[in-house]
Structure formats: C-alpha cells, structure tokens
Amino acid sequence: MRKIWIVAKRELMTYLQTPMAYALMAGFLMITGYFFSMSLLGSRAASVQSMLGNAGLILVFVAPILTMRLLADEDRQGTSEILFTTPVSVGQVVVGKFAGALMIMTALLLIMLVFPLVVDQFGNPDWGVVLSGYFGFWLMMTAFLAAGVFTSSLTDSQLVAGVAGVALLLLLWVIDWAAGSLGAPIGPILARLSITNHFVEFNRGIIDTKNIVFYLSLTFGFLFLGTRIVESRRWR
C-alpha cells in the first residue's frame, strides 16, 4: 500500500508540474461549461443531467490523453529499469500510476460541482439525482482511466497509447449500436458491455449495484491486463 502511494504521489506531482494536465482540465471545464450553459438556456430546467451525459463523450478523449504517458514513457525513457529494480511489484506500479491519474480527475470532478451549485442559486435542483449522476460519472471515469493505463502498457509510444485508448473507449461507447441488429444471444451481451448504458441509470438518480459492479470489474480487469502486459514485456 505504501509503495502504491509513493508511485501515485510522484505521478500526481508530475501532473501538477507539467502543463499537460492543466491544459486537459481547462479544456474539459470549458467544453462542459459550454454544455452546461447551453442546456440551461435551452431547457431552463434546474438539472445537470444533459451536461454530464455529454461530458462522458469528452472523457473518452481526455482520459486516454491523461494516462497515455504513464507506462509508455517509463519504457521509452528507460526509467522502468531503475523503477522495477527497486523493491516494488509491477502491480503496485500500475495501480499507483492509475491512482495518480484518478486523483487528478477526481479533483476535476469536484471542480465540476460548481455547475449544480450555480443551478442551486437560482432554482431547486434534485441533489439526489445530481450526486448520483456525479458518482456514476466518477465510476465511469475510473474505468476509462484504467483502460488508458492498459493501452499505455501496450507500447512505448505515448501517441500510440493515446490513440489506442481513444479507439478502445469509442468502441465500448458505441458497441450497443450493433445490439439491435444482431439479436440474441450476441445482442444483449453487447448491450451490457456498453459503457454508456450503465451510466444513464446513475444520471437518472438510480444507484444500482450491478452498475457499480460493472465499472469496478472493468477497472480491475484493465489494471490486471496492464500489469500482465508490463510483466510479459520483460519476459520476452
């Protein structure tokens, strides 16, 4: 646990000391702010549902760009050699790096609470729905970041890792489109795999354990795969 924290702390420091994370956060807040204003002006409803729903698509691009550096750069710079020859396991490094990225994104999500607070000044948003939506968004973000860490383990090029991450998340985003035309048994399975379907329920104010389990298992699955791949790269 201590090692995970040391690794996470270093990643957090790197994010805070380099411009990339700031640029991503600023861009993300700008676009979500635009979504928020537009939906507010359009519907005049005291809700952030539409903003959160759209923000998910932006997250498809932002999460892999934030994580693409994490494992790919260790290999490119050769620093994996000093890192992995200290008493640390590959799993600890992978989880630590993921945790660093998650901390930054969690901070971003907390900043995004400004939107419902603004609504609260002028109307009466349903805070239960708002918080359920934010919780669901946080879970989805966790899975996206884990997917980004996974693609970062595949290559020593940041760019390839980033592009692969976006492609993977986009595919999971649209995978249920095929569900209707394919029918049973493949169709329902694809619908279940869709990363959006599970979020929609949170955004309506429904916290269902099966949706929590979905995102958590996706997160564990990607982190496990990432660990295995980093290990196998050295065994080759």
Binding site: R10, M13, T14, Q17, T18, Q77, G78, T79, E81, I82
Partner: peptide, 9 residues
C-alpha cells in the same frame, strides 16, 4: 546504461 532518469522532476 545511459543513466535513465525522470527529466520532469
């Protein structure tokens, strides 16, 4: 070899 380090730290 070549003393790899983290340049951003």
């Amino acid at each position: 070899e070549d003393a790899p380090l983290y340049p951003e730290m």
